[in-house]
Amino acid sequence: MMKKLSLTYRLLKKIGFNYSEEEYGQVSIWQVIRKVLKTYKDAFLLKFVMNSWLLSPLLPRKIRPAVLKSIGCKVGKDVFVGDHVKIDSGHADLIVLEDHVHITGGCRLLCHQRDLSDYCVGDDSAKLGYKLAAIHLKKGCLIGMESMILPGVTVGEGAIVGAGSLVTKDIPDWTIATGRPAKVVKQIPIRER
Rank of each mutant, 00 (worst) to 15 (best):
G16W: 03
L116T: 13
R180T: 14
P60L: 10
D42Q: 11
H100W: 04
S28F: 12
G105V: 00
C111W: 08
H112D: 08
V101S: 03
V121D: 11
K4G: 01
S52Q: 02
D99Y: 06
V185Y: 05
K62G: 02
V185R: 04
L45G: 01
G106C: 07
K77Q: 10
K47Y: 11
I171Q: 10
A182F: 15
S147Y: 05
I143W: 06
V49Q: 03
I63W: 00
H102D: 14
S117F: 01
G122C: 11
E98V: 02
D123A: 14
K186D: 06
I160Y: 07
Y9C: 07
D173R: 07
L132N: 13
R191L: 15
H100I: 00
P151D: 04
V121L: 11
S165W: 13
T168W: 04
V167W: 12
A163G: 04
S125N: 11
V75T: 01
L166K: 00
I71H: 01
R193V: 08
C111F: 10
K86N: 10
V81T: 11
V79Q: 01
K186R: 09
G156R: 01
V167Y: 15
V153R: 06
G82F: 07
E23L: 00
V184I: 09
G158R: 13
K139E: 15
I15S: 04
F44L: 09
M50I: 07
L11V: 08
F48G: 07
K74I: 02
K35S: 07
R64E: 06
P181E: 09
I176Y: 12
L5C: 01
G122L: 13
Q187L: 11
K183F: 00
R64I: 05
Y40V: 03
C73P: 00
E157M: 09
G152Y: 04
W30T: 10
I15V: 15
L37Y: 04
H100E: 11
I149L: 14
A177M: 14
S165I: 13
Y19N: 06
P189E: 13
V101Y: 01
L12V: 06
Y9S: 13
Y40M: 05
G106R: 07
L116M: 15
P172E: 02
S52N: 08
R34M: 12
L45E: 02
P181W: 06
A126I: 05
V49D: 06
I95K: 09
P65H: 00
F17C: 05
T154D: 08
G76A: 03
K13R: 13
G90K: 03
N51H: 03
S20P: 08
Q31P: 09
G144K: 04
P151G: 02
R191T: 12
I87L: 12
V161P: 09
R10S: 09
D124W: 13
R191N: 13
K131S: 10
D173W: 08
T39A: 10
I87W: 05
K186Y: 04
K14A: 14
Y119E: 05
L128A: 14
C73W: 01
K131L: 14
I29D: 03
V32M: 06
L68N: 00
L68M: 02
G158M: 13
T154P: 02
F48A: 09
G72W: 15
Q26T: 11
G152R: 04
V85G: 12
V155M: 10
S52D: 03
E192Y: 08
K38D: 06
I33H: 00
K139V: 07
S89T: 02
